[in-house]
Simulated scan of single mutants.
Amino acid sequence: MKRFLVVAGVDEYTSQFLSQRIDLEALLILSDEDFKELGIPMGPRKKLMRALDERRRDLANPGDFVDSKL
């Protein structure tokens, strides 16, 4: 989850998620209201919501799997 938060630009809120035992799976089902309750300000909340929307889209349509040649 830490890597996801870093890429989303909101890693300074990692401690809030860890203290509530929120992992990446739980993060994917949280709402904007949940993030407000965790004390996440609007700017970072919007970044996080956008990153989660992108993650959900990627999970729903992962595309073709291409094996690499070593």
Results as ranks from 00 to 15, higher is better:
13 Y>H: 13
35 F>S: 00
62 P>K: 08
52 L>D: 04
2 K>S: 11
47 K>Y: 08
42 M>I: 10
13 Y>R: 00
36 K>R: 14
15 S>E: 15
50 R>L: 08
9 G>K: 05
28 L>M: 15
67 D>K: 12
36 K>N: 09
31 S>V: 01
43 G>T: 05
32 D>P: 02
13 Y>I: 01
52 L>M: 13
50 R>D: 09
31 S>E: 13
4 F>D: 01
35 F>G: 02
33 E>W: 02
44 P>F: 02
54 E>M: 04
49 M>L: 15
39 G>K: 00
42 M>N: 08
4 F>A: 06
66 V>H: 14
19 S>A: 14
22 I>S: 07
47 K>T: 02
6 V>S: 06
54 E>C: 06
58 D>A: 11
4 F>P: 03
39 G>Y: 02
65 F>G: 06
18 L>Y: 10
46 K>E: 11
14 T>M: 10
31 S>Q: 10
25 E>Q: 10
23 D>H: 09
11 D>V: 07
59 L>K: 14
12 E>P: 03
55 R>K: 15
48 L>P: 00
40 I>K: 04
47 K>R: 15
28 L>Q: 14
67 D>E: 15
28 L>P: 00
56 R>W: 00
19 S>V: 09
62 P>W: 10
60 A>D: 13
19 S>G: 09
38 L>V: 02
40 I>A: 01
12 E>A: 11
5 L>Q: 01
55 R>A: 08
58 D>Q: 12
9 G>C: 07
63 G>W: 08
8 A>T: 05
45 R>I: 02
22 I>A: 07
57 R>W: 06
57 R>I: 06
63 G>P: 01
39 G>H: 00
9 G>E: 08
28 L>R: 14
59 L>F: 10
8 A>M: 04
29 I>F: 11
32 D>H: 08
29 I>E: 15
30 L>W: 01
55 R>Y: 09
30 L>M: 14
51 A>Y: 04
62 P>I: 08
25 E>Y: 03
69 K>W: 13
16 Q>G: 05
65 F>W: 13
61 N>W: 06
3 R>F: 06
45 R>K: 04
34 D>W: 04
3 R>H: 14
39 G>T: 07
70 L>M: 13
2 K>T: 14
63 G>N: 12
47 K>P: 01
29 I>S: 14
29 I>W: 07
14 T>L: 15
61 N>E: 14
45 R>V: 02
19 S>F: 11
21 R>A: 13
34 D>R: 02
48 L>I: 05
12 E>D: 12
59 L>E: 15
7 V>C: 07
54 E>V: 00
59 L>C: 11
26 A>R: 09
48 L>W: 06
2 K>F: 08
66 V>A: 12
16 Q>V: 10
69 K>R: 13
61 N>M: 10
37 E>S: 12
30 L>R: 07
13 Y>S: 04
30 L>S: 06
18 L>N: 14
47 K>M: 14
58 D>T: 05
45 R>E: 04
21 R>L: 10
37 E>W: 02
31 S>K: 11
56 R>C: 05
20 Q>C: 09
61 N>R: 11
69 K>N: 12
32 D>C: 03
5 L>T: 03
37 E>R: 12
66 V>E: 15
61 N>S: 14
1 M>R: 07
8 A>I: 00
45 R>S: 07
45 R>M: 04
45 R>A: 01
